[in-house]
């Protein structure tokens, strides 16, 4: 699915140069469930952003689905991203002014999908995450768990090859956190590739591979039996 070689990300200001990622090499195969762990500031979110093409590496190579994406323009990156990647955020990042249905549909608006097809796919994915009965509600009318289910539905509706989850349980209580993790596990079993950043070792246990990072480098990789 993706392959990174000697990938670095450096942030520069007038006076300071900060290295967020340093010579990372990483391969993720189709159907994997990878958890990235590490202390705050170790570079795990930067890595996730680069995987998700929301950020570009300062140097190194990033091949996604056989295509080098490290030097692509923002427009091309947006094209690759929208056809291949779904995002789940810690703070849900739903649009307050839109209903549950509209929030999910948002992900298809930029895919040139006809409205009837959009409706069918939104209905399907809402059923899948169990949020159909809240279709007309606004995010502010939902619990945290429900909001994250909407976010998961939005990530899924475009049928992405890769789902990136940045601390998806960070804002949820234990019960709702477990619920979301079981949902991700189920998606992985159905064939989705998932890369998740988490602070929780117990949630990392859902993944097939755990990558531990420190100071912008991969410290250790552990593979678990499925």
């Amino acid at each position: 699915m993706l392959s990174m070689r000697e990938l670095s990300r450096v942030y520069r200001t007038d006076t300071i140069e900060t290295s967020a990622l340093s010579s990372i090499s990483l391969d993720i195969a189709d159907g994997e469930f990878v958890a990235i762990m590490g202390p705050s500031g170790c570079g795990k979110s930067t890595l996730l952003n680069i995987i998700g093409m929301l950020d570009s590496p300062s140097s190194g190579s990033y091949v996604f689905n056989g295509q080098e994406v490290a030097g692509l323009s923002e427009g091309k990156l947006a094209d690759v991203r929208k056809h291949n990647i779904g995002f789940i955020f810690q703070s849900f990042n739903l649009v307050d002014e839109l209903s549950v249905r509209e929030n999910i549909e948002l992900a298809l608006l930029y895919h040139d999908v006809a409205s009837t097809e959009r409706r069918r796919r939104v209905d399907e994915v809402m059923d899948k995450v169990g949020i159909a009965h809240r279709a007309k509600h606004r995010p502010s009318q939902l619990s945290g768990g429900q909001q994250q289910r909407v976010a998961v539905a939005r990530a899924l509706v475009g049928s992405p090859k890769l789902i990136l989850a940045d601390e998806p349980t960070g804002n949820l209580d234990t019960h709702h956190g477990e619920e979301v993790m079981r949902m991700l596990q189920q998606l992985n079993r159905e064939g989705s590739t998932i890369v998740m950043v988490t602070h929780s070792p117990s949630h990392a246990d859902y993944a097939g591979r755990v990558i531990n990072m420190l100071d912008g480098q991969i410290l250790i990789e552990q593979r678990r039996a499925a």
């Binding site: 427009g75 991203r81 929208k82 990042n93 739903l94 948002l106 992900a107 930029y110």
Partner: peptide
């Protein structure tokens, strides 16, 4: 930001 993540262009 959300719309851009979801594929919206400038």
């Amino acid at each position: 930001g959300i719309r851009k993540v979801l594929g919206a262009r400038i």
